[in-house]
Design a protein around this nucleic acid. Sequence first.
DNA 1: TTATTTGTTCTATCTTTACTGAACTAAAAA
DNA 2: TTTTTAGTTCAGTAAAGATAGAACAAATAA
Lengths: 157, 157
Amino acid sequence: MEDKNKAKFVEEAGLLMESFGMTRMSGRILGAILVSDNEKISFFELVEWIRASKSSISTNIRLLIRIGFVKMVTIPADRKTYYILNDEINWGDLLSNRMKMLTLFKILLRKAWDLRVDKNDRTSNWTRNAIGFYEWTEKAMTEMIDKYNNTGIRKEK
Amino acid sequence: MEDKNKAKFVEEAGLLMESFGMTRMSGRILGAILVSDNEKISFFELVEWIRASKSSISTNIRLLIRIGFVKMVTIPADRKTYYILNDEINWGDLLSNRMKMLTLFKILLRKAWDLRVDKNDRTSNWTRNAIGFYEWTEKAMTEMIDKYNNTGIRKEK
DNA sequence: TTATTTGTTCTATCTTTACTGAACTAAAAA
DNA sequence: TTTTTAGTTCAGTAAAGATAGAACAAATAA
């Protein structure tokens, strides 16, 4: 990456995405695309700018495509593959996916509840209350996502 | 863990918490507390039921205490420390913490925006739009959390 | 045809980190 | 006092996972 500040940004993006449970390299790639002045970035530009192996770039760009942040573009009479940020990214779905964590935890709590013998001791009360919280949150978040999808913020372009 | 189904549940809890970025062992401990019939669970009961090392139980129970799920209780004339689910857990804070991820990502996008030369090309448009999405979500989630804290679901007990 | 480009995939290495075992601390019991 | 209990902490191990390197495939170019 030519610009020193941009190179720093790319590393920062790597560390942040890593802290979110993604790979550092996928964060670097996303970072590089975010600050590239080219309208589209090629595989070898990524390899050069980030100075990582082809294999790592290949694996991680596929990860970014899978989660919907990036998409491939190709050009007639050009063998190369280019990568750009994905306009059709569904932000609502992204939130829904995060919400699935809550749902899975709620399901776990329900299983705990089912396994409990005394449904009125302290732990059972805690569990019931926690399930209530997760149900409330689930509902509120679903409404929020619906609101975004409908009243929503227009698609750019 | 005496009961076969409970033992299975404990492992399931371990794997789920692991998928959330916690340790497997902290999930097992939380699981064991959730399905224990004892009103409070001692350190050595955890060691025995989960069949893990004292060190691992010690480290991970502290993790659960730190994030607020579990608290210690002690009894006069008893050297042991017992662990129970924490009634004073602040569910709103728990959501706020999750929201911090969104905020950090938004800040990263702002930095990308600042580094961009052409503020009107495709990537800049994408970035502006993404920042808008995260701002919207942040606001909606904050309102949601406030609503929970105020109208809120009564504390048990 | 053979050589080059553009990536992919497989294996190995390197790093990280969860967990264990052992040594240690603090307090109570003998 | 010495011993036992209850738990913590440190150092080492083992397992998981991210990245690199090399071999490979598919397509085009020469």
